[in-house]
Amino acid sequence: MIEVKNVTKKFGSFAAVKDLSLTVDDGSIYGLVGYNGAGKTTLLKMIAGVYKPDEGETLINGRNTFTDAAVRLNMFYVPDEIYFEPFSSIEKMAKLYAGYYPSFSFDTLDSLCGVFELDKKARLNSFSKGMQRQAEMILGMSAHPDVLLLDESFDGLDPQKRNVMNRMLIDYVAEKNCSVIISSHNLHEVSDICDRMALINGKSIALDCSVDDIGADRCKFRLVFDRDMTASDFDGFDIRKIKVDGKMVTLSVKGDPDETERRLRAMNPVLAERFPLTIEEVFLEEMEEKEYDFKEIFG
């Protein structure tokens, strides 16, 4: 189990992560979603033992990942910026990792290289970006870690390879009952594979729930009234987003959808429709997107 307890990380006066907590159970794939610069990579690096939290701690099975190096023997971190030794091949990098990971398997390496059709003796700097990501994933999986941290690891993969990667991860987790954290800004990518997701917004967790429940506590409504309405008419609701256009109102409300619908219908709209929120809409609402008038900017 991975535990992140009230971690804060600052770079100078800038706080990349502030008082953030989450838990990842064994046998689950946890998605970490957030806008660029939200703190996903920083969080993963703290879990990986690369960064030391300024406050709080990161634990794997109760052991601190920064101070206890041994806990990292069964943890593999695939960073966003991939590193390979100069002039190295998959095979050469495998020898490096094999020395540091007790469970590293060259058999697994060979098998996975076959699946992804990568030449393990070829120079890695001759690979494309996507191929390098595949190579890094192969190396990580070959280490048979109990904890796998993937930072934007699907970036650059074609749909076919992504599909293969997804299946591989799901099967691996099921087989090993390990914990995986995937960070991405691609919601679909994460929602397809993850059990749980966390939305990081403004350095802290804005939303932490299972993928299935991500939209369960909110809903979108489109209402038409026989009179002109204003936003203040809906003050009693936990509005996430509202757009009033005369008599027509479109709003997203947090709360029990059924109860919310009942209360809205009590306002006697001429027409009331209810729609489930997509993950993108939930993401955007939570990220507090600013409305930019680009016509004004470029006009």
Partner: peptide
């Protein structure tokens, strides 16, 4: 010295001092 290399070496199962 490298951002990328330190990601790898500092996440290994060996302490920095060792």
């Amino acid at each position: 010295m490298g951002k990328k290399s330190s990601n790898v070496y500092f996440s290994l199962g060996i302490s920095r001092e060792k």
